[in-house]
Structures are given as C-alpha cells and as structure tokens.
Write a protein that binds this DNA or RNA. Structure first.
Lengths: 220, 220
DNA sequence: CGGTGGCCGTCAGCGTTCTGTAAGCTGGAA
DNA sequence: TTCCAGCTTACAGAACGCTGACGGCCACCG
C-alpha cells in the first residue's frame, strides 16, 4: 500500500510517517502543494493524506484538479479544528474522508485502511463517468459539483449502468434489477425511464443497441 | 446512536441498559454469543459492547468473525479483572477499546461516546455545525451560547445526522438508530420529528431528499 | 390523589412529485 | 417501402412528505 502524505509541518509528517510505516504502508511525502499535486497526478497511490493548508497550492485546489482529471485515488483530508466550512468544501471537492487536527494517529491509520479497502473492493462510494460523478453516500449525480437532481428510479438506473460500464444490458435485465419482482412483462417503463435520464444528463449518456439493450455512452 | 450490548449477566446488562439509554443511546441486547454474532453481522450498530465470556460462542471468536467479514463497527470489550492476556488478544482481534470488570458505568458511557465520535471522524465531544454547537455530554444544542432546548428525541435525531454529515440517511435508517427495535413499520414519526426539529433550528438544517431520505442542510 | 404540562406517537387531510401506462410517432434495418 | 423496436408525450393514480390536531403517557407538584 503506497501512501502520499502531503503535509508541510515536519513534526506531523514525521509522526504520520512512523505510524503508517509501522502499519505496513509505504510512505511518500511532499511538503508543498505544487509538488503534491504533480505527484498525485502523475503517479499512482493507494491513498493520499492531504493537508488543506499547504504552501504554493491550496489543498482544495489540488483535490479539485485531481478529480477534474479523473483521478479517483481515495483522499483523506487533514483540517484544523473547527474549520467546518473547510470540511464541507473538502467533501464537495471530492474528499473521501477527513480528520480534524489534532488527531490520533491510530485514527488516521484506521481510516486509511478503510478507504483503501473501500476503493479496492467493488464499493467505492464515488464513481466518475464522463463529466459526472456518482456518489452513493449522498445518492447524487453531480457535474462539476452541480447536482443533477435525479429521482430515485433514475438514480438506480444510472447507478446500475455505471456499475456495469462497458457492457450492453438488456431491458429485461434492467427491469429485474431496478424493479421489484412484480413487473409487467410488456411495459415500456424502461424506455420511458431511459428517456427521462437522457433528458437530464444528455442524450449521449445512454446508448441504445437496438435489439440488444442499453449501455453507457462512449466516453462514459 | 444504536448500541448492541452482548452480555449474559442480567444484572450487568440491565445496569448498562439504564445508563446508556439515559445517555441517549438506543440499546439492543443479546445474551448469547451466537445471537450476538448474528445481529452484529446482519444489522448496523454505531457501537457494540462485547463481553468476552459469552455462552454458545466466545467473544473473541465473534469479534474475529466480524472483522474478517469487514465489519468496522467500533467494539468495546468487557473483560474480567486481571485477565491481561484476554485484553491483548482482544485488541489484536480488532477491539477498539476495553474496560475491566467491575467497572463504573460512567466510564463505559464516556468510552462509547468517544468510540462513536472517532468512528465518525469527529475529534471533540462538542461538534459545530453551521451556527450551532452540539454537545454530546450535556445533550444540548446551542447557538452562540443560547440553548435551543431540544427534547431528547429531537436531540437524538440531530446528533445522528451530525455524526453522519455529508450522507443521505433513509427514514428506515433513522428509525433503526434512534428508536428501539419495536418500531412500527408504517408510521410518520420520523417526519413529525423532523418537522419539530426544523421548527426549532430553522427549516434549512435538515434537507429532504425526496425518495432517498434526509441529510444535514448545505452549510451544516 | 387529582391536576397540569411536556413529550411524542398517531391520524387524517393535503399538496407535490414521481412513475407506469397508453397511444401515437420515428427512424433504422432489411 | 415495410416493419417493429424504441421514442415521445400526456395523464392519472400512487407514493411521498408536510402539517395541525389529538390523546396517551409520565413526571412533577400542590
């Protein structure tokens, strides 16, 4: 497990380094924002610990850039006590978790483990597709942070397609997965639903494979 | 906050039940190991108090199974005085904290609160959200030092939402975590409760995500 | 012991939003 | 051109959540 620690305070960084190493992570460290952004953008880590108050480039900016570039590496944010707006901003910018300073190192370790597990397992709580971000925690699909206001059924459909990205899925399969068992065989409910999603997210999001079913559009 | 107490001794269990309930937890209890394991595996609790000496299935086994299955619920272990090895084993098996019998109930309460807080990434027992301050010890919500006089149920709701800030929580989840097991399936108790909290703290505090559930409002 | 007040779940009614259905239309494939 | 899978639109019933009123329950108090 490779972790990037982006933290300018030497004392904190050293504490993290010791504990994380002991916990079996291999730790890389950067002290300024620009360097941190570059490494996070060009290398692959299993998780990143990101202090919001970095010199050169602000932590939030870094995070947003990564997310905009489609980097899905789990990010744990370090924020000063009581800066709750920062936390909210951080989450909206795409942080997967945050910890308030001063913190217990054990906590960071535990949370990093959880993040990595979640990211490796099937269930990451945030999935990017095209310009959209699907968040299972908030049950939201956003484009650049703007919520798309999907209804429950619409969300289910998108969510299902995204989870099976790259595959063509028949109407029957869709029906079975997003409806209860008491569905009507001959019903155009799915077609209508697809139309509704297209109206919200754009016609390209769902591609029709006439005679076979539907799939996420190219580039999604 | 929903807590599972896995304890075979009726007297101890009852003591815990009373104190934890008074402290704002909703308590579920199991007396034997197998039942405890099953419930901890299949339901979600915010914390678990686990006696190591349970009939049917040993506490350590239970804990290991939960951890092996990826259950991250904070677990506080009850262990007999002087059983030093048990404690070590417990920690290695994935316990988050332990208390030695005989114990002061206050200590359990305090430690449980700390566990729940830590599990949710909150450092202090006083948590700010928006202009409000939530104090878990006094069970009070204040705005600029002015108490908002929430009733116990109202406080539970707010507290739960704050602990899970950033997530959308379904009515079912809310019911499960702030009421005891004997809840009515079809009841609008939660809706009414939400309305009452909004009347006190302002309509924005709780956002409705129609068809999904509730979440703390933007900026909280 | 009876009265009072606060808490809280239930209920009925209402407005809003969601969603499946139906009916007619479109467009791609053969 | 024909045909049919899929699209579009309108609509009505269902689902959802909000509100105000009510009453049971319990603690407190005279």
């Amino acid at each position: 497990m490779r972790v990037l620690v982006a933290e300018d305070d030497d004392r904190i960084a050293e504490t993290l380094n010791v504990s994380l190493t002991k916990a079996g992570f291999s730790v890389e460290r950067e002290r300024d924002g620009e360097a941190a952004w570059f490494r996070g953008d060009s290398e692959t880590f299993d998780a990143i610990v990101l202090d919001l108050g970095l010199p050169q480039m602000d932590g939030l900016t870094i995070l947003k850039r990564w997310r905009a570039a489609g980097r899905l590496t789990p990010v744990l944010i370090l924020t000063a006590r009581g800066q709750w707006e920062e936390r909210v901003d951080g989450i909206e910018a795409g942080a997967d978790d945050y910890v308030v300073k001063p913190f217990h190192v054990q906590e960071i370790v535990a949370r990093l483990r959880a993040l990595v597990r979640r990211a490796n397992g099937l269930a990451s709580s945030r999935i990017a597709f095209g310009k959209y971000l699907l968040d299972l925690r908030t049950m939201e699909v956003t484009a650049d942070g703007v919520p798309m206001d999907l209804t429950p059924q619409e969300f289910k459909l998108v969510s299902y397609l995204v989870h099976r990205r790259g595959q063509v899925i028949s109407q029957l399969e869709i029906t079975e997965h997003i409806y209860n068992q008491d569905y009507e065989r001959d019903s155009n409910a799915v077609e209508v639903l697809v139309a509704r999603v297209r109206k919200r997210l754009g016609a390209d999001v769902i591609r029709t494979r006439r005679g076979f079913g539907y799939a996420l559009g190219d580039g999604y």
